[in-house]
Simulated assay, not measured.
Amino acid sequence: MQAEPEVAVLRYGHRPGRDDRMTTHVGLTARALGADRVVFPGNAGQSAETVEDITGRFGGPFAVEMTDALDAFIRDWEGVVVHLTMYGERVQDVEDDVRAAHETDPILVVVGGEKVPFEVYEAADYNVGVTNQPHSEVAGLAVFLDRLFEGRELEREWADADRRVIPKATGKRVVDPDAADGE
């Protein structure tokens, strides 16, 4: 069985001090919901460190990269570019087309952090809106990835994890997956 083509998430823009938590959550959401890597702007080093730390503790594979050339990254992408924006086509109207494209092509999901220039809209193969209402870009990314993977990402097993969360109705249980008794 051949692996699916890559899904990468590009955080377009980052305002230090203002976007730190949101940029980190874009990376964590990308990781948890099935993307293969996240690419942060060059000034988002703290977010990159946090996502790398979580990947080290809770497993991967998942890659974290940084670039100062966001526009070039989009322009040079060899695959489908999906820009998440409240002004785009409804996710439910394009999800089948995007999923079909992903059968053969890698997908780059662009998630804005500040005002996104019109050139990003033009470079995208799909400008996709989740509800076409103002809301968190993290929520939009989560809904989009769940639609793309049709829920399969929720069953993912994580390799090389130092910790594993055991689902419970109440309370918390985190175990060492390599321990003989799971504790």
Rank of each mutant, 00 (worst) to 15 (best):
V80D: 04
V91G: 02
A179Q: 13
R90D: 15
D76R: 15
R90E: 15
R156M: 10
V39A: 11
F62K: 07
E153R: 05
V174A: 04
G13W: 05
E157P: 01
F144P: 04
K172W: 02
G56F: 00
D105R: 12
R57H: 14
A69Q: 15
A169H: 01
F58V: 00
L141M: 06
P5K: 12
D97H: 10
V111Q: 08
A100S: 14
D125W: 08
D146R: 08
Q133P: 00
A35E: 10
V64G: 01
S136D: 11
A159T: 10
G171P: 06
V130P: 04
A72P: 06
G182V: 03
H102E: 07
G140Q: 11
H102M: 02
L148A: 05
Q92E: 14
D76L: 11
G151T: 03
Y126N: 02
G88N: 08
P134D: 00
D178T: 15
V174R: 04
G112Y: 07
R37H: 07
I166D: 10
A8F: 02
E150F: 03
Y12P: 06
L141H: 12
K172F: 02
V109N: 14
G56T: 01
A159R: 15
E114I: 03
Q2F: 03
V82K: 09
V39C: 12
G34D: 01
G60A: 09
E153F: 08
G129F: 00
T131N: 12
E155W: 12
L154P: 01
Y12F: 15
P134M: 00
L148K: 02
V138K: 08
E155P: 00
D146E: 13
I74W: 00
G17V: 13
E137V: 13
E155V: 07
R156N: 09
M22H: 00
G171L: 03
K115M: 13
W77Y: 14
E153A: 13
A139G: 11
V94H: 01
V110S: 07
